[in-house]
Design a protein around this nucleic acid. Structure first.
Lengths: 63, 63
DNA sequence: TCATTATGTAAAATAAACTTGACACAATGT
DNA sequence: ACATTGTGTCAAGTTTATTTTACATAATGA
């Protein structure tokens, strides 16, 4: 699942660890999502969208 | 995760099995999501939103 | 040069999503 | 009375998401 996490992070100058902290997940989870190793769960996708004040569809796109 | 699947199904007069077929998942998966036994994966949430031509946030809401 | 930070990745474990197969029950139609 | 349909649920198994711990490497700063 393609996503704009890296860009959204860069805009805020956040490291993967920073983002992980704000999402209460591990740094490896953030890394795995960014590098498309796996997709976030729906609850996590909601958390991410919430954090960036965007809609899920504005951050993630299938395949 | 609260969701409007049952309503959206009812509007179309689809059974859980009908919806499952359209989503290429099992009937039990649809039932489990409707009865909030678990949340769909993000890819499945996208499929559902796509099928109903709605946004994920218009179908699902955290907790 | 040394310590720190950011990122990528791996392995092993647990949790969550999803499958198939099955059974029960209520409602509907023949 | 019988068969069918829709829904809820359970058990056992597979796949996917997430965790912790750990290691490698590149870049930065003292």
């Amino acid at each position: 699942m393609r996503n704009r996490l890296k860009i959204l992070r860069a805009e805020r100058n956040w490291s993967q660890a920073d983002l992980a902290d704000r999402l209460s997940v591990s740094r490896q989870t953030v890394n795995a999502i960014e590098t498309e190793k796996y997709d976030p769960s729906l609850p996590l996708a909601f958390k991410i969208a919430d954090l960036f004040a965007l809609r899920i569809e504005d951050i993630f796109a299938p395949a």
